[in-house]
């Protein structure tokens, strides 16, 4: 197929991928993975972030934002449910790690499945009653849920209230790879592995039954139900998978940051993650990755205007949304047309 428009990055990339043979695809994937893995060594180039340590910025916010945005993208992008309380799952994962890590002998990798399981349980518990609601109402309930989780953490004694939990253990070393505070390259590689795993999971699910069910639900929930899609079940699945990714990110965040407090899990984080998803191009994995990378990285890159950086961030959101309302890398036209019709109805 001839590439008509070099400026349309999404079609350009999709064509490149579709026309490539299998070995070529493997090569493209390996080269891109290798390139991303080498990113932490490029701290001396123009990518460098003033003030904040470049390695640390790559792990949090950039890596974590990408991971969480991918998780949220399952909920918002794939199945079209607006979730404004995503930070709750991140908080549940982080507090699982912090409490189990400080009170028991479990290490990060052993806590990881527990943290994921707890966030998934929270996802199901929240999902069963609330996922009957639609649109803005769902957004409000999830927003309320996120705030409830934060306020409970803030006011309970087992979570040490506003003081937060300190001395969360670092992950144990994997062979020669050492986790250190000053040198966070290994953390970056772990986040990258988790991101790849999530992308792989989403891509697998998208082409199978759940993916098709989500797509049907996103386009027209009533029609999907009439066609025999068990909508509530698949909505809960989507919600729970998103929660699992958020929980995993939380576990890693707690053991990377060594200290967590309720003020790290405000509504602003949920909104920022949602902004990443919409900014990059909702529903499109690569758009989300790019959006989260830019929004995670930008505030630290422009720290030289230190005080005004959030102001610039807000302006960027307004401007990009006004001129590219479907995000930087939107999903395919065919899918988009349907969303538009819905919005006008």
């Amino acid at each position: 197929m001839k590439i008509r428009n070099y400026w349309n990055l999404r079609d350009f990339g999709a064509n490149l991928w579709e026309n490539a043979s299998r070995p070529k695809r493997v090569a493209i994937a390996l080269i891109s993975i290798g390139f991303v893995a080498l990113l932490p060594f490029m701290g001396a180039s123009f990518l460098a972030t003033p003030i904040a340590s470049y390695d640390a910025v790559l792990v949090y916010p950039v890596g974590m934002f990408v991971l969480m945005s991918l998780g949220l993208n399952i909920v918002v992008g794939k199945s079209g449910m607006l979730d404004l309380g995503y930070v709750a799952f991140f908080a549940i994962g982080a507090y699982t790690m912090a409490i189990l890590g400080t009170t028991t002998k479990l290490n990060t990798w052993e806590v990881m499945p527990i943290g994921i399981a707890l966030s998934m349980i929270a996802g199901v518990l929240l999902g069963i009653p609330t996922l009957r609601l639609r649109g803005d109402y769902l957004a409000i309930v999830t927003l309320g849920f996120g705030e409830i989780v934060r306020l409970v953490l803030l006011n309970s004694s087992w979570s040490k209230g506003p003081n937060g939990i300190a001395n969360v253990p670092m992950p144990p070393n994997i062979g020669p790879l050492k986790f250190e505070l000053e040198n966070q390259k290994v953390f970056f590689w772990v986040v990258m592995a988790m991101i790849l795993l999530t992308i792989w999971m989403i891509r697998r699910l998208t082409v199978r039954r759940p993916g098709r069910a989500w797509e049907a639900i996103r386009q027209d929930e009533d029609a999907a139900e009439l066609m025999g899609v068990h909508t509530l079940k698949y909505k809960i699945w989507s919600f729970t998978l998103g929660a699992a990714v958020g929980g995993a990110a939380g576990v890693l965040y707690a053991s990377k940051n060594l200290y967590i407090a309720p003020e790290m899990f405000t509504l602003n984080v949920s909104i920022l993650i949602l902004a990443c998803v919409v900014f990059g191009g909702i529903g499109n994995i690569w758009g989300v990755v790019i959006g989260a990378t830019i929004l995670g990285y930008l505030p630290d890159r422009i720290r030289f205007i230190s005080d005004a950086r959030l102001l610039v961030f807000g302006l960027v959101l307004v401007i990009v949304m006004n001129f590219r309302p479907d995000g930087l890398l939107p999903r395919k036209k065919r899918e988009k047309a349907i969303v538009k019709r819905e919005a006008n109805a």
Partner: peptide
Amino acid sequence: RLRAKGTNRLATLISAIGISIVLSEL
């Protein structure tokens, strides 16, 4: 502008979030 384009609601939501960040940061 977004209303005139008739685009999706999420874009408008993010744009509103952006302007509220601008207002509070200012």
